[in-house]
Every structure is written in structure tokens, then in C-alpha cells.
Amino acid sequence: MSARRLAEQQPDSFEFTPENMAWLDKQIAKYPQGRQASAVIPALWQAQKQHDYWLPQKAIEKVADILGMPYIRALEVATFYTMFNLEPVGKYFVQVCGTTPCMLRGSDALIKVCEERIGEQRHVTADGLFSWLEVECLGACCNAPMVQINDDYYEDLTAESFSKLLDDLAAGRPTHVGPQNGRNRSEPLGGLTALTEFYGADGKSGPLSDPAAAAQPAHPGK
């Protein structure tokens, strides 16, 4: 990592959309009067989401104005967290985990693919589709090696499956989120080996295959 700076090309202005503003108002209302600055991280995050996954200077200033904090305080937060992108990113922003478990499982190969296909870190391809960044542990070590592309995790990658994934994304074909080697989440690759009297009776694996659980809607909220 090196010193992070704001992008050289900056948009002239930044405004939250009405929906995002309404969302932000709700976040701010969570904190007591005089402590509005506590909402700085959600506010910056929403601004980043709205603005093609990177934070322009005007967005940082807007957030500081809304929360009544000095600009430098908002800039401190934006530069501290590497998850805030200060420069434009590709339409597909690939974050490759390079921490020990992923490295042991072959993340170096993924990084090599990135270097060959996308180029240097923090550089957007000419077509604007891809940029990549090596990041620290994303918390999916049991499915190492893995990458995060925008909001989704793609796990159990090899150089080949990762290349194919990038091809699919570039061509606009649908992709399968999660393990890319046929595994179900973080279950064993060859199917269940324990508790088989409870799970897997229907030929599928995982808690959903539990007869009692299957009777319930899987995601009550949806």
C-alpha cells in the first residue's frame, strides 16, 4: 500500500439522490443530537455506492456538510479505510484476497491473471470494465482462494475458473456467485461425510436438505 490521494480528475459536484438522502436521514437519526458525525462511515459508503464505487472530493465535502463536521475529519475517515475508493474503479471491481490462507491456496495465480488481463493494480482497463486491487483477508478462508467482485464473493478459484469468470463478466453472461468448483458453500467438495443421517437424505446437501427445515420457507423475509 502507498499513500492514497484523491483522484486528479474530479466531478464538479455531488448530490445524494432523494432515496439515498432519505436513507441517510434514517441513519443519522440513530445517533443522539450533537453526535451526527457518527454516521460518517455509512454516509461515505452510500455516497461511494451511488457514485460508481468511488468517492469524489465533492462527495466527501457533501457528507461533511450534512454531518456538520470539518472537511479534514471526513477526509481522515475516507483515507483511513481502504474500502473507500478515492479513484475511479472499473465496472467490475475485483478485490483479490492475498492474505495467508488464500496465498497458501494459490492466490498468487489469481494475481497473475489480474496482472495479465487487467494490468497494474488500481488501473481501469481501457474499456472501463475492470480494475483490481489486492486486499487483506475478506473472511472466506475456508473457500480460499477467493475474490470479491463488486458486492459478490467468488470462491474456490483456480487460474482457469477465474479467467473464465472474467470472460463471462466481460461478455455480459450470467455468473454463478459463490464457489466455482461445484462445492456447496463451505461444505466438503465430495459431499457430506458426517451427520448424514440428518442431512443429505434427499440427495442435496446442506441444512436446506433437512426435511424439517425444508418445510419452512428458507428466507422468511423474502
Binding site: M1, S2, A3, R4, L6, Q57, P70, Y71, I72, R73, L75, E76, T79, F80
Partner: peptide, 25 residues
């Protein structure tokens, strides 16, 4: 600058070994 001056001019941007003391831009 934050406490005595009340202008909050200076800040510590970045993190770790890349920490830098500066004013806003």
C-alpha cells in the same frame, strides 16, 4: 487546531506507515 483554535485545520490522513499530517487538501 481542533481544541484550542477551534478551526480544525489539521488532520492525520491515511493509515499506518502512510499516515500524513496535513491540512484539508
Amino acid at each position: 487546531t481542533a481544541e484550542i483554535c477551534g478551526t480544525s485545520d489539521m488532520g492525520n490522513i491515511g493509515r499506518g506507515e502512510d499516515s500524513e499530517i496535513t491540512t484539508y487538501l
